[in-house]
């Protein structure tokens, strides 16, 4: 079923779900929404499953025309939303009529906005996921970002009678300053005490060399004990590698699956989702927590996500 036609694709707009799990051993990255929380919220606002595919919009919005009556929600990075030229709110169910245009402006806070469509986006499932992995040409629409003229397919589902909005206090705020809680290791022992101290006490800046694969950070050099290389082992999103120049790299969703630089620490799951909203010139500070603390925070975050549907407020 044709739901939208793309008029302007924006800077980098891709189809993403929660990711492609289980294929790391074949060299296939996880991919999926960079900011899971916002994507899941977007799905819930149109009563979709949390894993239904959405559009991830990077920095500059998309313009599309509805080919049928539908409902959408826009979440994530703060972005102006217009339906047929009229301002529309983020973080709530929006009704779009056939022929109307939906246009999103520039992301003003954060980096990535999510547009969910009632019923989800229908693209072929590749290795268990609809997520687009552009570099590997997998998933989404022909494994590439959207372009003008693309038709976004959906599923035929009954429209929602009840519309929803996110309670104000649950809407994440993206300030450009990220506090990232980390668990040290697996290769923290390859750094000097001074190096660890530098890592945990300095403010780092996200550089232009940052994308869905990872963020290169600029800031004080982290001192290695001896070698700055390891025999390659596995990577996961959140891993923080430090190559020979002492500047950390945060591994993100489309990263290569193995790497040869020592990993000083790994960002915890809730903060990794927030980091999905980091853009060049934002600042990042790292805070060490114990595995026990990380465990508590993980469970709390999981509860927050699974309880989100009940917290939404009916708007009609």
């Amino acid at each position: 079923m044709n739901v939208f036609q793309v008029l302007k694709p924006g800077f980098l707009t891709t189809v993403q779900d929660l990711g492609r799990y289980g294929y790391l051993k074949f060299g296939v990255p996880v991919s999926g929404a960079m900011d899971t929380f916002s994507m899941v919220a977007g799905n819930l606002l149109v009563a979709n499953n949390p894993n239904d595919a959405c559009l991830e919009i990077t920095l500059l919005g998309i313009e599309m025309q509805a080919l049928t009556d539908t409902q959408i929600a826009v979440t994530g990075g703060l972005i102006p939303v217009k339906i047929n030229g009229e301002n529309a709110p983020m973080w709530q169910t929006l009704t779009v009529r056939k022929g109307e245009t939906v246009s999103l402006g520039k992301v003003a806070k954060g980096c990535r906005s999510y547009l969910s469509i009632r019923g989800g986006i229908n693209t072929p499932i590749v290795l268990g996921s609809r997520s687009t992995y552009v570099r590997g040409k997998l998933g989404g629409i022909e494994g590439r970002p959207l372009k003008a003229g693309d038709i976004i397919q959906g599923f035929s589902v009954p429209p929602l009678r009840d519309c929803f909005k996110m309670p104000e206090n649950l809407v994440p705020q993206f300030t450009g300053n990220f506090s990232v809680h980390v668990v040290l290791g697996p290769q923290a022992d390859m750094f000097t005490e001074k190096g660890i101290e530098t890592f945990l006490s300095s403010s780092y800046t996200v550089t232009m060399e940052s994308d869905r694969m990872g963020y290169r950070l600029e800031g004080p050099q982290i001192e290695h004990r001896d070698r700055a290389e390891i025999v390659s082992d596995a990577l996961l999103p959140g891993a923080i590698q430090v190559p020979g120049n002492g500047k950390p790299i945060i591994i993100m969703k489309d990263a290569q699956t193995t790497g040869g630089y020592p990993k000083i620490a790994v960002a915890t799951t809730p903060d990794l989702d927030m980091l999905g909203q980091a853009k060049p010139n934002d600042t990042v500070r790292f805070f060490e927590i114990t595995l026990e603390e990380a465990y508590e925070r993980f469970l709390e975050y999981r509860r927050k996500l699974s309880g989100l549907a009940e917290k939404l407020i009916k708007t009609n």
């Binding site: 790391l24 082992d233 596995a234 465990y295 469970l299």
Partner: peptide, 22 residues
Amino acid sequence: IEELVPTYRSLLIRYDPAKITY
């Protein structure tokens, strides 16, 4: 256990902390 990733010299094990503790 959700995923296993064998490499040269180590095995990465991804798990769900809500189902099993470290």
